[in-house]
Computed example of a mutant assay.
Amino acid sequence: MANGSRQAAWEFFGTELKRRREDAGLTQVDLGHRVFVSGGYIGQFEQAIRKPQLDVAKRIDEILQTDGFFERLWRKLIDDRRYAEYFAEVVELERTATKISTFAPTLVPGLLQTPAYTRAVMLAGNPFVTDEYIKEKVTARRERAQLLDGTTKPEYWSILHEHVLKIPVGGAEVMAEQLDHIAQLVHRRAVLVQVLPYSVGAYPLMGRMVQLMEFEDAPPTAYTEAVYSGNLLDDPALVKRVQGTYDLLRAAALPPEASQALIESAAEDHRRCASTT
């Protein structure tokens, strides 16, 4: 679905929500209280500024007695089968974000991955799937990465643990290409990348990835991931706490110039390794 038609569909979602809420004789505050969000959030849903989470859409159906209408519409708009169910909503939010900040403790973030790197990651976790399955996943991730090439691309800031630079995902040659790609994105000023060095020792969010997203007309969100599950946070107090933790990581990381030098050095190390095998 193109971005224009997707936005139109969300506007339809909001219009229907407002109509059915008013038919039920409820204010935005009334409905928000019953589905455990603020009245302001309901207003943002109705104006298509913000997209509700699935559990909120389900509760709206229950309160307004709409027989699953909003859940079905949500799934039609959000549920992209190329992505895990818990991540599909994050992909939707990325398209409207004005700023994306990530911390990656073990793997290169999806928006920075090369196709060869993505393929290696997918194969490692899915050794018995078909080539077609892998190709679909690689294509989907590449389409996500195009977000950084657009004229309205978000400000993208990523902190990589030094561990990410060392693991030869896909082999030394693939890893060298991957790190070269990140270095090129930095040179083009398409992204800003810092490296959290081993020397830091213990650090906040030990071993946990996090992604923060900011929007022009909606509150920020935070996303964290565990084993085959994800958690999208939009509670203002929780998001503020995650933002504070991210600031600590940023303060502990190497400056951008030193980070770039370390990335390029790691690429050369992988390239030398590839040439000797």
Rank of each mutant, 00 (worst) to 15 (best):
L205C: 05
L192K: 13
Y223C: 09
S229N: 08
Q194E: 07
G230H: 06
A190S: 14
A176M: 04
T221H: 05
T221D: 05
V186Q: 07
A176G: 11
L205M: 15
L192P: 00
E214L: 04
Y223T: 11
V200H: 03
I182C: 02
V191W: 01
Y228P: 00
A183N: 10
Q211L: 11
Q184W: 06
H181S: 15
Q211G: 01
L196Y: 03
L205K: 02
P197H: 07
A218Q: 08
L232E: 04
V200D: 01
V210F: 00
V186N: 00
D234L: 09
A222L: 02
A176E: 06
L233W: 13
L232M: 11
T221L: 07
Y228D: 13
A222C: 12
V174P: 08
E177A: 13
I182R: 00
T221W: 01
N231K: 01
D234K: 07
L179S: 02
M209H: 10
A183Y: 10
M206I: 14
V210K: 00
V191H: 01
E177S: 12
M206P: 06
M175V: 11
Q178L: 08
T221S: 10
A218V: 10
N231A: 03
P236D: 09
V193F: 05
A222I: 01
L185D: 00
N231Q: 08
L185Q: 07
D180N: 14
E173K: 10
L196H: 03
A190Y: 05
P197Q: 12
D235C: 05
L212C: 08
A226C: 06
V210T: 01
Y228W: 09
R208T: 12
Q178I: 09
H187E: 15
P204F: 04
D180L: 05
E214F: 07
F215L: 11
L185E: 00
Q194V: 02
L238S: 13
L192D: 12
R188W: 04
A237E: 15
L196C: 07
V195P: 08
L232A: 01
D180H: 14
Y228N: 14
M213S: 13
G207Y: 12
A222M: 04
S199C: 02
Q184A: 15
S229A: 14
I182Q: 00
H181N: 12
V195K: 02
Y203I: 06
I182E: 00
A237D: 13
G207I: 14
T221C: 11
Q211Y: 02
E177P: 03
A222V: 06
G207W: 13
F215K: 09
E173R: 11
H181T: 08
